[in-house]
């Protein structure tokens, strides 16, 4: 299962690609695989405040639905509008075209509290 080294991860299977004060958020290939065919992604409006660990949206597959949890506190700068017509991008390219949010991170240091690739890989291998 693809777990890119340059990302940080949550136990709820979101990833963050941080670049200074900004970050991009999505869900991992493992999560997309567990969900199966993604059919709908509900994302917040631009400008929404995120608090770490709180639900920011939901993702639905044919037979299940899950909440999406914010990895970090911050503000939504942009959402991936392509997902509204092509939710399958989450399955086909979870770390690329299947991204969900671009956020301004309140505390760039908080990224270090998330799991690195090795820790996340260990987690999903144990599941």
């Amino acid at each position: 299962m693809n777990v890119p080294e340059d990302l940080r991860y949550t136990p709820d299977h979101e990833w963050v690609r941080a670049d200074g004060e900004e970050g991009v958020v999505g869900i991992t290939a493992y999560a997309a695989d567990q969900l199966g065919d993604v059919v709908f992604v509900e994302l917040p409006a631009t400008g929404t405040r995120l608090s770490a660990g709180a639900s920011f949206g939901a993702i639905e597959s044919v037979k299940t639905a899950s909440d999406l949890f914010a990895p970090l506190a911050g503000e939504v700068l942009a959402v991936n509008d392509a997902l509204s017509t092509q939710p399958e991008l989450v399955n086909s390219d979870p770390y690329g075209d299947g991204w969900m949010l671009r956020v301004r991170i309140d505390d760039p240091g908080s990224i270090d509290r998330l799991e690195d690739a090795a820790a996340y890989r260990t987690r999903i291998e144990a599941a």
């Binding site: 639905e60 597959s61 044919v62 037979k63 299940t64 639905a65």
Partner: peptide
């Protein structure tokens, strides 16, 4: 279709 809105999948949500 759009089954994920329903109680047997979403339960309390």
């Amino acid at each position: 279709t759009l089954r994920a809105r329903e109680q047997d999948i979403r339960r309390e949500k």
